[in-house]
Amino acid sequence: MSGLTFTPSPGARPLSRMVRIHAAMETRLLLRNGEQVLLALVIPLLLLIGGARSGDVIDLGSGRRIDVLTPGILALAVMSTAFTSLAISTAFERRYGVLKRLGSSPLPRVGLLLGKVLSLITVIAVQLALVAVVGLGLGWRPTGGVVAGAAAALLVVLGAAAFASLGLLMAGSLRAEATLAAANLVYVVLLVAGAVLLPVSSYPDPMQPVVTLLPSGALAQGLREVASGAGLSLVHALVLAVWAALAAALTARTFRWE
C-alpha cells in the first residue's frame, strides 16, 4: 500500500504561470515532431541556401539574389509555424480530445490561446534568428538599422497573427486529416504562387495585385522593402491586419472544440 492520500486541496496556479507551462509543453512537442521541425527549419534553410547558389536557374528579378531571397524565407518561416504547424497540431488536438480534456482543466480557453501564442513567438524567434544568420553568412545586407528592424518586427507580428488565425480557422472547422492535407497544400501553393520565393515583380502584370493581397505576398514583399531601405509600406501592413481580423472573427464564430 502506498501512503497516498487524496484529501481535497484544489486550486489553480495563476494564469501567467499556466500560460508559460502550456507554451513550454507545446514547444517541446513541436520540437519532438520530425515533420514539424522539417517544415519549420530544414525546408526554409535548404531553400535559402539552394536559392542563393542556384545561379540564374531561377530568375529572382533585379537586385542581389540573396537580398530578394532572405526576406522571403523569413516570411516562409513565419508561415510554416503560424499557419501550417499550428493548423495541423490544433486539428489533431481537437481530434484526440486534448482540447476537450483541457476544457475541464484549470487552464481557461484564453490561457490555452495565450499559451499557443507564446509558443509561436518562441519558435518563430528561433527560426528568424537562424534564417537571418544564415542569410547574413550568404551575403544578405539589410539596410535601415533599428527603424527597419522595428518595422520588420511589426510585419512579422501582423503576419503571424494573420497566419495563425487562418490556421485556427481551418483546424476548428475541418477534420484533422483534411486539415493536414489542406494546410500542406496551401503552404506549397503560397510558396510557389504567393511571392515567397519570387518578388512580386516577377509575376505577370495581371497577377501582381492578387499576389500582393495574399498574406504571404504582403509579408514577404513588406519585409523585402523594409530590408532594402524602402521603409514600411502601410498597404502591406493593412493587408495583413485585415486578414488577421477577418480570420480571427470567423474563427471565433466557427471553432468547434470537439
Partner: peptide, 22 residues
Amino acid sequence: GGAWSAVRAVEMLDYVAALHQN
C-alpha cells in the same frame, strides 16, 4: 483520449499537475 499522441505518460501527468496549486 485527451492527450497528445507524442506526449509521454508521466510528462502529461506532470503537465496537468503543474496547472494545479497543490
